[in-house]
């Protein structure tokens, strides 16, 4: 497999699995306005997925590949999203903290990808950046509401942060594919993103009266296709139709 293809999978899988998690909330939000807002984010992410996977199908070298074959017909070890985005919708605090951590990373990533030498990736980034700016605005304002809201919301937000924070490093630590893409001027430099990410996160936590965990314990593996136990269940949902009724048009 070529590295560009793999890199596109990493980009697309993050948006897809997070989009999936958010789509599970449709109809179950804390009120109608918030329900609608979360679905908007999910739809933005799925739009990005389609751009990435349509491009990935082209560069894959296999003419049989389509956005759907890439989205639905890989084995678990071939999905390359970070561990953070597959974490479950335990409660609204998890939904918001997961989103906030991802959005900070995502916005810096896209800002870097805007100047990618790969014009297709640069174009996707330019389009997505507007969406993700709004995502970040939404998630960070909710982190503040939960962190500095009531005692209960503060506790729940702190617990979600403590639980999710170790999963976020997985996105930020460069692997071999990302290093190669950076060398070629196609991919982003995660070292720079990681620094910016940590500064922004720290600021957000201060204004939200939340405390970042001291330890730097980091779960890892998502980008190598080694996932948490949740992933198999996500895929059984996601792939159900394509697996149960193979080779059909929908």
């Amino acid at each position: 497999m070529n590295n560009l293809y793999t890199y596109l999978l990493m980009l697309g899988d993050n948006s897809m699995i997070l989009g999936h998690r958010l789509s599970q909330l449709c109809g179950h939000g804390p009120n109608l306005e918030t329900d609608i807002a979360l679905t908007n984010i999910s739809l933005d992410l799925y739009g990005q997925v389609r751009s990435y996977f349509q491009y990935a199908a082209k560069v894959s070298g296999n003419p049989a590949n389509t956005e759907d074959s890439i989205a639905f017909l890989r084995y678990e070890r071939q999905y390359l999203n970070g561990l953070l985005v597959e974490q479950p919708n335990t409660d609204f605090a998890f939904v918001i903290l997961r989103q906030a951590l991802f959005d900070i990373y995502h916005l810096y990533l896209l800002e870097a990808l805007e100047s990618s030498k790969d014009t297709q990736i640069a174009a996707i980034a330019t389009k997505s950046i507007k969406e993700v700016k709004y995502h970040q605005r939404f998630s960070s304002s909710w982190v503040k509401r939960l962190g500095d809201g009531t005692e209960i919301s503060h506790q729940k937000a702190q617990y979600a942060l403590d639980t999710l924070h170790p999963y976020s490093f997985d996105l930020l630590n460069e692997n071999a594919i990302e290093a190669d893409m950076k060398e070629q001027g196609i991919g982003a430099d995660l070292h720079i993103i990681k620094e910016k990410y940590q500064d922004t996160l720290k600021d957000l936590m201060v204004t939200s009266t939340l405390t970042l965990p001291d330890n730097t314990f980091a779960h890892k593996g998502g980008k190598e296709g080694v996932h948490s136990e949740h992933m198999g269940f996500i895929l059984s949902d996601l792939q159900y139709m394509q697996r149960a009724y193979p080779n059909m048009q929908w």
Partner: peptide, 12 residues
């Protein structure tokens, strides 16, 4: 399950 969320927003 959304009650504490709505309350937090009001308090904030």
């Amino acid at each position: 399950e959304g009650a504490w969320v709505r309350d937090a927003a009001v308090a904030y």
